[in-house]
């Protein structure tokens, strides 16, 4: 009985997680349409989060694709929430252009 209860609870929980995941896991940011508000949030989150374990890496170091993947890597390694990660990706992909 207890096992059954736990199973129901566990599946409800994972259902919840997966469900909200499907809603939240939107399409990746399209770098050709940067949103200024998102970039501003991203700059702040970058300054807060990205120097916690190692030196802050310079935006100009990587191209858009590399930043996108690397920051996703940091989402997992650094346990940084996904919404913050999308803002940081948008910021880095908007700041890495060499004029």
């Amino acid at each position: 009985m207890k096992l059954l209860k736990n199973l129901v609870l566990a599946s409800a929980f994972s259902g919840l997680i997966m469900g909200s995941g499907l809603v939240l896991a939107g399409d990746p940011a399209d770098p050709s349409r940067p949103d200024p508000a998102q970039i501003a949030r991203g700059a702040k989150a970058w300054a807060d989060q990205c120097g916690r374990c190692h030196n802050m890496r310079a935006p100009a170091e990587l191209n858009d694709e590399d930043w996108y993947v690397s920051v996703t890597h940091m989402r997992v390694r650094g346990n940084i929430p996904g919404d913050m990660i999308r803002d940081i990706q948008a910021f880095l992909m908007a700041s890495n252009k060499k004029e």
Binding site: P31, L62, D64, E65, D66, Y68, V69, M93, K97
Partner: peptide, 17 residues
């Protein structure tokens, strides 16, 4: 401006680090 910022990234992306 659109061509200066990259085109939308492909679904599969990779990075060698």
């Amino acid at each position: 401006a659109a061509s200066r910022t990259a085109r939308p990234l492909s679904d599969t992306k990779w990075h060698l680090a």
